[in-house]
């Protein structure tokens, strides 16, 4: 379990990173927290010729309030730092709630927010949170800077919309809105394992108590994190009820997702977990939104 030989570069600025990316193209890999990349290299599943270490790059690790009241997280913000940040807890409680589920404390001490998103593991928690919140990422590349919405960012199995030569620099999370509530739940074999199924739910209720928006993002149910559209359709425009969240759970588990079996969970079990977790997460999210749940007609 020793990596193949590689060249190691440790640039100080984003400009230098972009320069190196331009120079080495797909022979290079970016090293952020290294919690996925280094094991992959030690197993020799990845053998990059050049490793560009981002850990000395300045200006990528700040946590700031955005002009619109949302949150801007530098790509190199450690997951543990975000987990402990009062600003994160205040502005994006769903992120604060989810971070303890991301692997283990030791891993979060090194792992970064940006690295996690760019890795785009379909079993990872943070991509689902981004989807549920309608977050976006800022990237810099040879042609300047651009913003990519979470819905467009995760393109497939470990695939993102990042183009060659681009660096993810920042994560932008929208401000909380009146009548909003969120919740994250997952079922994993052990604390810290990849979830067999996880769900990040974000709902918004209008002053009349009707569901205005419901974003339900699932992880570990396909090749990428995905939004359960048919589950949302059960809720939007409706007054939240236990019958409606139950229906949303069934829609998510039976219609929205197309999960695969693995050694930890069969297809049937994954569908069932999605059904249960979506219902539970929505119930919690509506409660946090201050929405009164009716019994509803079943």
């Amino acid at each position: 379990m020793k990596p193949a030989p590689f060249e190691y570069r440790r640039p100080d600025t984003v400009e230098e990173v972009l320069h190196l990316l331009a120079e080495y193209g797909d022979e290079a890999k970016l090293l952020a927290g290294g919690q996925s990349l280094i094991p992959t290299m030690n197993f020799r599943l990845a053998q990059p010729a050049v490793l560009i270490d981002l850990n000395a790059v300045k200006g990528l690790d700040s946590v700031d309030e955005a002009d619109d009241g949302g949150l801007r997280l530098g790509a190199m913000v450690r997951q543990a730092a975000a987990e402990r940040s009062a600003l994160v807890a205040e502005k994006v409680p769903l992120l604060a709630e989810t971070l303890p589920f991301v692997a283990h404390a030791q891993i979060r001490n090194r792992g970064t927010i940006g690295g996690n998103l760019a890795h785009a593991d379909p079993r990872s928690e943070l991509p689902a949170v981004m989807l549920a919140l309608g977050a976006s990422v800022r990237v810099r590349g040879p042609d300047g800077e651009r913003s990519i919405g979470a819905g467009d960012f995760f393109t497939g199995f470990f695939g993102t919309a990042l183009e060659e030569g681009e660096l993810l620099t920042e994560v932008v999370l929208p401000p909380a809105v009146e009548g909003g509530g969120q919740a994250f739940l997952e079922v994993s074999r052990r604390l810290g394992d990849y979830a067999m199924v996880g769900v990040a739910a974000s709902v918004v209720c209008d002053p009349a108590g009707r569901c205005h928006r419901a974003s339900i993002a699932l992880l570990s149910v396909g090749s990428r994190p995905m939004l359960a559209e048919q589950a949302s359709a059960c809720l939007v425009g409706e007054r939240p009820s236990s019958a409606a969240v139950l229906a949303a759970g069934h829609a998510a588990g039976n219609k929205d997702i197309d999960p695969q079996a693995d050694m930890h969970a069969s297809v049937a079990y994954r569908r069932h977990l999605a059904t249960v977790l979506v219902r539970r997460a929505l119930t919690a999210a509506f409660e946090r939104a201050g929405c009164v749940m009716g019994e509803g007609a079943s």
Binding site: A261, D262, H264, S266, V267, A268
Partner: peptide, 21 residues
């Protein structure tokens, strides 16, 4: 056993990844 295997035993659903996929 595992939670998944327990679920499949109770519900009579197939657990083998190859059989299930």
């Amino acid at each position: 056993l595992s939670p998944g295997r327990l679920f499949d035993l109770v519900h009579g659903t197939p657990s083998d990844p190859e059989a299930a996929s």
